[in-house]
Write a protein that binds this DNA or RNA. Sequence first.
DNA 1: AATGCGTGGCA
DNA 2: TTGCCAAGCAT
Length: 361
Amino acid sequence: MISATLPVRALDQKAAPRPADLLAWYDRHRRRLPWRAEPGRTADPYHVFLSEIMLQQTTVKAVGPYFIDFTRRWPTVADLAAAPLEEVLSAWAGLGYYARARNLHACAKAVVERHGGHFPADEDVLLELPGIGPYTAAAIASIAFDLKASPVDGNIERVVSRLYSVDEPLPKSKPRIKALAAALTPARRPGDFAQAMMDLGATICTPRSPACPLCPWMDPCTARAGGDPARYPVKAPKTERPERAGVAFLAVRADGAVLLRTRPDKGLLAKMTEVPSTPWGPVPVAPQSHAPFAVNWRKLPGSVAHVFTHFALSLDVWRADLPARTPAPDGCRWVLPKDFSREALPSVMRKILAHGRIEGA
DNA sequence: AATGCGTGGCA
DNA sequence: TTGCCAAGCAT
């Protein structure tokens, strides 16, 4: 018989997850990433900032080449701040969520103007900078300055929701998960702890078929004990993705130049370069009335499909060949394919050009 | 608080 | 093929 006076844990209770166990795992298994400092060192805050912005909703694999390119072009935050926005946007082209690039540039300028070119070592002050939200402020504070902060990204949401079997669905459960993560964060090595949580989520505690036997927290994990860790995190049902359609006008001049223009300052693909097109709507719009030239257009075979976050797009492509020295209509410009690399061409626009067999960068 | 905002890889 | 997912932020 177990004495009631002894501090004996009931058999169905689990030990709390120990940060030291995760840190020991991290010391052996940490990923080597371009923006990450060598073990025992803290990273360049500019590198942490740049990588964190790029990594928002974006895979490590996709970010790699962009991070290398950006740091080569703009080695310091002051260099980035001094660059023209157009160059930053064209360097960002293809990475998606272009508001990040605009905010990245605005943030670099703010760091120079408000903080003398040094990132503030303070989570609350970081939070006031453009493009830096709760996650990124905590990530920079902890990773770049080793301050006690608890960034919560998708990885950490998954790890924490499994550790504690959080049944309330996201995003409603965010505050609770944030509190649990904060309670777990140690006073020593908070930066390594944050990165360890992310590495664990990315390599062991993965969305599907997590590798529990390799996990340093297998023992204290309640979802593992429950037998179906992959059912966490519980998420609210998603709204469906509507279809939109339109026609893109590929005007090609005799010298090979293609008619392009810059999109409006706000909204989808703001300030990016585009191929002129009809509006993209749920119902097809009379294409002729939106054509940049009143000439004979021929529809190219097939169509271009592209999926955005909140709608799926299907575009027909109409082509017209025009004489050399044809002037560009208002708001448009002729661009030779060899100069495409200087343009801020999003992936959907590159697909349209490729569909018309136009070879650019 | 809910919605708008990209892209590519993967099962 | 289709849906899901990846180091979120702004409004």
